[in-house]
Every structure is written in C-alpha cells, then in structure tokens.
C-alpha cells in the first residue's frame, strides 16, 4: 500500500508542473493588455512602457514563467495587479468560502443522490424508479444559474424568507455556523447541489441495478442472508465507483462556480475568477487557477488512495 501511495505521489509532480505551465500560458495567450486593470487605453506609450517594466511584463515569456514558478514554489503568488493585495491571501480566503459552500452542497447533493440512486436501483423499471430518475435528469439538465435566480425570486423577493445575496450579515469574515449566517448559505448550496445530486443518483442507480443482477447476490440470497445483509454487500461493491464520482463532483464544487457565486454574490473562488477575468488581472487569474488545479490534483490523489484502501484489487493494477 505504501509503495502504491508513493508511486501515486511521484505521478503528481509532472502533473503539477504541467498544470502550472498550462495555466501560465493560457492566461498569457488570451488577447488584450495584461495591464488593462491599471493602465487606461488612453495612457501614453511612455507610461505604458514604464508600468510594463515595473510589473515585469517586458521580459521574455519563459523568464516570466521561471520567475513566477520560483516564487510560487516559495509560496508567493505575487500581488494582484488591480488591488495590489497578495494573491495567495486573496485565493485562500475565496477558496475557504467556496469550501463552505461545497461542503454544504455536497451534504445535500450526495445524500439526496445516494438515497434516490439506491431507491431507483432497488425499484428498477417501476414508477418509483421513474420519479427518482426524473429528479436526476432535471438536476443535470436545469441550468443552475437559472435555478438560482428562480429560487431567489421565490424565497427572497416574493416570500422574503432567505437573503438573496452575500455570505453573512457582515460578510464572510465573521462567518459562524448559526442560523443568522446559515440562511445565506441555503439557496446557493441547494443550487450548487443539483448537478452532483443528479450525477450521483444516476451512478448509484446504475451500480445498484448492476450489482443486484450479479450471481453473487443471488448466491447470498440463496444462502438465506437477510435483505439488510444483501444491501450491505451492494453498498460495499458500489462504494468505490460511487466514491470516485463523488470525489470528482466535490472537486468540481471546490473549484467554485462562476455563475452560481456571481448570481448570489458569494465571495468564493468562482466570484474571484470572474472578477480576475473581467479585470484581466493576470497574477490573480494565474494564482487562482493554479490553486484550484492543485486542489483537484490532490483530491484525485486522495480518492485514488481511498479507492485502493476499499478495493485491494486496484493497487495491484
């Protein structure tokens, strides 16, 4: 097991370097001037050259990448061009808010998804299955930003039950797990949860149906195992794949949703990315993408290790 984990960690190194290179290149090949946030189009050429030198954009691209990577390895992602604030602190604060949202959405989405998937799988081809599957299809198909707006219209504007925007009465700095703050989380969390709920439902339904039709389940029943015991075997066999899917979904949610966070003015990584894109704030954009990509890479690593722990056949491969 330790050798397997070590091997997986070694694989991560080239992936991380590739991710850093790709995210650096991606933001540099996009059109427009990297200094657009601090340099109006009407600025003189002399001023533009002066600022380009001050920010190091006058150097060759490989040199810029090398310097950025070196600083990044020391935990310094530079300062935002638009705000002057350190990128790392900005990203970590935003990621913290997105994690709060992702956890809430994961609790809702995964619980609902597993429940609906198991029910649909056990009652395959019945009306119960059709109802559960309809939920799953709706979850995957409905544009979540549209659902978000709809929820705001109903629960904030019409009923005035829940806040429409924000992350707490005084912002996310003073976040607490009480109702005064949690009510700000309800609508964005429900909106974020619908896609993972749909995907997990469909996955668990397919797995459950597939496992129930296998010979060993027949054998278990023939040996007189009660249905609760059969259910335990089904869950254990479905768990590795379902876990992998949930891990990926959690990864997506931790990446933040630009649309959902913008609709709810939720100050997470999606909101930050939106702002960085519109202001063309390259250091912030690079730093945010890098941190999110690393998050994803390490989450995948954890899922791989968890899968191997649950299913010993995996590490032999």
């Amino acid at each position: 097991m330790l050798a397997y984990i070590a091997r997986r960690i070694v694989y991560v190194v080239p992936i991380v370097i590739s991710v850093a290179l790709v995210c650096f290149l991606l933001v540099h090949i996009t059109p427009g001037d990297p200094l657009v946030a601090v340099l109006p189009a009407d600025a003189s050429q002399e001023l533009a050259a002066q600022l380009r030198a001050a920010y190091g954009f006058d150097r060759p691209l490989p040199v810029q990448f090398g310097l950025w990577l070196l600083r990044a390895l020391h935990g310094d992602l530079g300062n935002s061009i638009a705000t002057g604030r350190p990128v790392l602190a900005e990203v970590l604060r935003a990621v913290g808010n997105t994690v709060t949202l992702a956890i809430a959405a994961a609790i809702i989405g995964f619980t609902m998804g597993i429940l609906l998937g198991l029910i649909a799988g056990y009652f395959r081809e019945t009306w119960i299955d059709k109802v559960a599957t309809s939920f799953a299809i709706a979850g995957v198909s409905v544009p979540h930003y549209w659902l978000g707006m709809l929820l705001v219209i109903i629960f904030s504007v019409q009923l005035n039950w829940l806040p429409a925007v924000g992350a707490g009465p005084n912002g996310s700095n003073s976040w607490a797990w009480d109702w005064a703050h949690l009510k700000y989380l309800v609508l964005p969390a429900i909106t974020t949860s619908v896609i993972p709920m749909g995907i997990v439902t469909r996955t668990v339904r397919a797995l459950t149906g597939d496992i129930l039709s296998q010979d060993f389940v027949e054998a278990l029943r023939a040996k007189g195992l009660h249905e609760r015991g059969v259910f335990r075997h089904v869950v254990k066999n479905a768990a590795p794949t379902a876990l992998a899917v949930m891990g990926l979904q959690l990864g997506y949610m931790l990446g933040g949703s630009i649309l959902i966070e913008t609709v709810f003015s939720w100050p997470g990584s999606g909101f930050l990315l939106n702002s960085a894109i519109f202001q063309r704030d390259l250091p912030l954009l690079q730093g945010t993408i890098l941190i999110l990509a690393l998050f994803f890479v390490f989450l995948n690593l954890l899922v791989d290790i968890a899968q191997a722990a649950i299913d010993p056949r995996i590490k032999r491969g």
């Binding site: 707006m149 705001v152 219209i153 904030s156 504007v157 005035n160 806040p163 429409a164 925007v165 924000g166 913008t262 609709v263 709810f264 003015s265 939106n274 702002s275 519109f278």
Partner: peptide
C-alpha cells in the same frame, strides 16, 4: 457591496437587503 450581476442587485433591492 459589490454585486456585478444585474439580477442579483435587483433581487437584493426587492428583498430589502
């Protein structure tokens, strides 16, 4: 309060936020 999305701003006003 920064609210870049027009519908979100409007909803915040309509809901008294």
């Amino acid at each position: 309060l920064p609210m870049p999305e027009a519908n979100a701003r409007t909803a915040a006003l309509l809901s008294g936020q």
